[in-house]
Nucleic acid binder design. Structure first.
Lengths: 343, 343
DNA sequence: CTGAAAGCGCTTACAG
DNA sequence: CTGAAAGCGCTTACAG
C-alpha cells in the first residue's frame, strides 16, 4: 500500500520506443494518426507496465473531467435515489461517470459540494437546491440542471414535477371527499420572492374556495421522518385540533408516512380521525398502514430528462434555458377518509 | 454560460504585484512565510478577480484530491444511506469531501467506479463490493475500507456487522420460537472460496441442530424489493410448501419486507402462516404490517468506523489491516410466530 | 519573507 | 504518421 511510483506515458513511450505524443494518441481514444505497428508496440508496453491513464492530468489539460455530480437533499428518500438512478443511466450512456452528493438539507454541505464543482472537478451538475440562491449557482457558469422547480422564471435548466398542479390535485381531492379544514405541512425555503410552490398552490386554492388561511395550520416542517414526528406533536398540541383540522397535505411521502406513524402511536387513526395526503408515491406509501393516498411523481422521466438537459447544455452552453415539468398523478389508497360533503 | 476564461494565480499575482509562488502560498493554507502586506494584496486581488483555486491542478501537483468515494450497492436502501451518512460526517470533519457511487449490484458499474479511483480521482475508497475479487481492489493500492465482511482473512481494512453471529442470532430465535423447517434467502456472490457468511452460518446451524440442509429451501436471491416478489413466487411454487417451510431468514430487511408484502397479496399471513426474520432494522421494519422481527445492524457505528479506518490508512499506508465488526441486536416484532416447540 | 524554475501527467497545434 | 515543444494551473525545493 505504499505510494505507487505512478508510471506515466513517459515510461510507456520509452519501452515502446516512441514519443509520448504517440502514446498519448493511442490512449486518448480520439483515434487516428497512429500506425498499426506503433499502436501495437504502445499497447504492449502499456500491458507490460500496467499503465493507467491519470485522469487528473487529462482533466487539467482538456478541462474536462467526464464526471457529473448529482446533489440531493436526502439520499435515504427513495424518491431521490430513484430519480438519481434514472439520471445516472442517461449520463453513463453518454460516457460520463456519475457520483452523488448528499446535502442532507444542509446549506453548508451544499456549499461544500458547489465548491467542488467550482474548482473544476465536474463537467456538470444536477441538483435539488437547498437554498433559493439560484443566481449564485448560475453564476458559477457550470452546466447545471435543477431538479425541482424553484421559481417560475428559471435562470437554469429545470426538470421536475409540476408542483403547483400536483399540489392542486391533492387539495382538490381532499375537497371532493368532503374536507374543509385542510392544513398544509411543508418545508419553506423562506423568502417571499420564492414562496414555496406548494404553499402558493395552497393559498390559491383557499382563495378560490373562499376559505380563509389559518396560519396555525400552515406547518413549516422539514420533509423527513423527524419532521413527521414533529408535525404529529404540533398537531396534537393545537388546542381542540380536531375542530380545526380535518385533513393535511404533506409536502412529501416521507413526511406523510412518518406523521401517520407518529399519530398512530398517539391513538389517532389516520383515514378516519384525520385524513392525510402525500406527494411522491414512494414504495413505502403502498406498504404502510393505512396505505397512503398520494400524488405520484414521475421519477424515471424526471431523471432521464435531467440527463438529457444536462447533456444538451454541456454540448451548447449558449442554448436557451429549458424547463421540463411532468404532471403528478393521484393515487388513492386509505389515508383519506370519505366525509359527507356537507359535514 | 460560455467557457469561463478561468483566471489563475498568474492573473492574481500580476494584480497583486507579487510572484505566483506567493499567491500559491496564501491560497494553499499551509500557512507560513508570507508577509502580512503581501497576503493582504493577494487577498484583495483574489477578491477583485473572483479567483477560484483549481483543484484539478492542485490534485495533479500534490497527488491528493481530498475526495473520497463511497460505493454502495443500493442507494435507495436506507441501511446504506445511513451508513454512508455516518461515514461522511467523519470524513468531512477531517477535511475530505465525500461523494457516493451507486453500483446497483452491478459489476460493470462497480468497475467503472474503480476505474475512476484508479485514475487518481480519489484519495480513498469505502465500498461494499459487488464482487469477491478483493485482490483486484487491493492491488489498486488506493486506501480502501470494505463495508461488510467478505472473508475471514481480509486483505483490506474492514468494517461491518459480525454477520456470522447476527445470522446465528436470527436462526437461534427462530429455533427458540419452535421453528424447525427454516429456509434461507440471500444473495450469493457465487464462489466456494467466499461462501456467503449468511449461508455459512446457516449451514453450521443446521449441522449443529442435526437438521439436514434441503437445497430446495435455500433461496439465492437479490436483496431487493424485486427479489422479495421473486422469493414469494418461489415459495408459493414449491409443492406443498407449508409442509416444507415454517420460517425464513431473509438476507436483509428490504427483501424481508417485500416478501411479506408479496406473500400478503397471495393471502399468506406472515407471523401466522409463515415466520420471517430480517437483518438490518431499517425504519420500514417498524412500520410494515406485520412489523418485522429482525436483527439490527449498527449503521452509525459502522459508518464512523469506516471513516476512522480510512483516515488511518491514508495517514499510514503501511499499517496492518484492521477489521472492526459490530454485533447485531435482535429486535422482536410481529413477523415471527410463536410455535409450540414440539410442533 | 520571496521569486525563478522545475515539474505533476497529460494533450495538442505545429512542423516535418 | 510522428516528434519536439508549449502549456493546462498549481506547488515546492532551492536560493537569496
Amino acid at each position: 500500500m505504499s505510494k505507487k511510483p505512478s508510471i506515466s506515458i513517459i515510461e510507456v513511450a520509452q519501452l515502446a520506443g516512441v514519443s509520448k505524443s504517440t502514446v498519448s494518441r493511442v490512449v486518448s481514444d480520439r483515434g487516428g494518426s497512429v500506425s498499426p505497428e506503433a499502436e501495437a508496440k504502445v499497447l504492449a508496453a502499456i500491458e507490460e507496465l500496467g499503465y493507467i491513464r491519470n485522469h487528473i492530468a487529462v482533466g487539467l489539460r482538456t478541462q474536462r473531467t467526464w464526471m457529473v455530480l448529482i446533489m440531493v437533499p436526502d439520499i435515504a428518500n427513495p424518491f431521490w435515489a430513484e430519480t438519481a438512478r434514472a439520471a445516472q443511466d442517461g449520463l453513463e450512456a453518454a460516457g460520463y461517470s456519475v457520483v452523488i452528493g448528499n446535502t442532507d438539507w444542509n446549506e453548508v454541505r451544499q456549499e461544500r459540494y458547489l465548491g467542488l464543482a467550482r474548482s473544476g472537478r465536474f463537467d456538470g451538475l444536477i441538483l435539488n437546491s437547498v437554498t433559493n440562491d439560484l443566481e449564485a449557482i448560475r453564476s458559477m457558469r457550470i452546466p447545471t440542471v435543477l431538479l425541482g422547480e424553484r421559481s417560475e422564471n428559471p435562470c437554469l435548466d429545470t426538470v421536475g414535477t409540476d408542483t403547483l398542479a400536483a399540489t392542486r390535485r391533492a387539495l382538490d381531492y381532499l375537497w371532493a371527499t368532503g374536507h374543509r379544514r385542510i392544513a398544509i405541512a411543508t418545508s419553506e425555503y423562506g423568502s417571499e420572492r420564492f414562496l414555496s410552490l406548494r404553499r402558493r398552490a395552497y393559498a390559491d386554492f383557499l382563495a378560490e374556495k373562499g376559505l380563509s388561511l389559518d396560519p396555525a395550520i400552515v406547518f413549516q416542517i422539514r420533509l423527513s421522518e423527524e419532521g413527521g414526528r414533529e408535525l404529529a406533536r404540533s398537531i396534537l398540541a393545537l388546542p381542540d385540533w380536531q375542530r380545526r383540522i380535518d385533513s393535511i397535505f404533506c409536502g412529501n411521502d416521507v413526511l406523510a408516512i412518518a406523521t401517520i406513524e407518529a399519530l398512530g402511536e398517539a391513538g389517532v387513526i389516520v383515514g378516519r380521525d384525520l385524513s392525510i395526503i402525500g406527494l411522491d408515491d414512494i414504495p413505502a406509501a403502498a406498504h404502510c398502514r393505512p396505505a397512503l393516498t398520494t400524488v405520484r411523481k414521475q421519477r424515471e422521466k424526471t431523471g432521464r430528462a435531467a440527463a438529457e438537459l444536462l447533456l444538451a447544455r454541456i454540448a451548447d452552453p449558449e442554448r436557451p434555458f429549458e424547463k421540463r415539468l411532468f404532471p403528478g398523478e393521484l393515487v388513492t389508497r386509505e389515508s383519506v377518509a370519505e366525509r359527507r360533503a356537507d359535514q
